[in-house]
Structure formats: C-alpha cells, structure tokens
C-alpha cells in the first residue's frame, strides 16, 4: 500500500491508498480522480494518463522503458523531464507519500 497524492491542474489535491502492484493510472480512474483518462486501459497505447512526478522522488521510480518514452511524445500537454505515463508506475511501499501533478489536458 502507498499513499499517493494527485494534484489536479487547478490545485485540487486528493490522496488515496493504492494497493501494491496497482498502477497510478488505475488507482486514479478507480477513485474517479479528474485529470487522468487512461483511454487505452493501461496497455501503453495512448498518452492520456500523462502526469508529472514530484522531481525529488523521481529516483524512487524505475526509469521509463523506451515504449513509454515513445508514447509520451503523443501527450497533449507539455512533456517535461518529470513526465511519466501513470499506467507504467506500479505502487509499492517505496512510493508512499508520492505527489503526482496532473497536466492541464490529456487531449
């Protein structure tokens, strides 16, 4: 279990308990958090779960694979160094307390 805080573009923050192994995208849509769409269902086939990871915690995450980086190119909002697809990030105790910022649009 990890407590993850999602901060929408308008500043509204929601913290949810995410079971180990669940992706951050899945937890967001299951908890009806606006700002993450997850159109493809988590198969890395769209970029509508784009998020920005708190930069200080980037090192706690496994690096993105090539397929994730290629798909991030399709993101509707600005892609930054801390951009990730939330469907590719699995919750674990190491991520407890992580803050995830959501972009203005998912397209």
């Amino acid at each position: 279990m990890a407590k993850i805080t999602y901060v929408e573009h308008n500043g509204h923050a929601t913290t949810v308990d995410v079971p180990d192994g669940w992706s951050l995208m899945q937890a967001a849509v299951t908890n009806a958090i606006p700002g993450i769409v997850g159109e493809c269902g988590g198969s890395r086939a769209c970029a509508t779960c784009h998020c920005y990871i708190d930069e200080a915690r980037l090192g706690d995450l496994p690096a993105p694979e090539e397929g994730e980086l290629a798909m991030l190119d399709m993101a509707a909002a600005e892609v930054r160094p801390a951009s990730r697809l939330s469907c590719q990030i699995k919750a674990s105790p190491a991520l407890d307390g992580l803050v995830v910022h959501l972009p203005e649009t998912q397209g």
Partner: peptide
C-alpha cells in the same frame, strides 16, 4: 485492463 487491455479500444 492492464497490459492485456484490448488492442482495439480506439
């Protein structure tokens, strides 16, 4: 859902 979510969603 997950890695096996339908290829044909779009």
């Amino acid at each position: 859902g997950g890695v096996h979510a339908c290829l044909g969603t779009s």
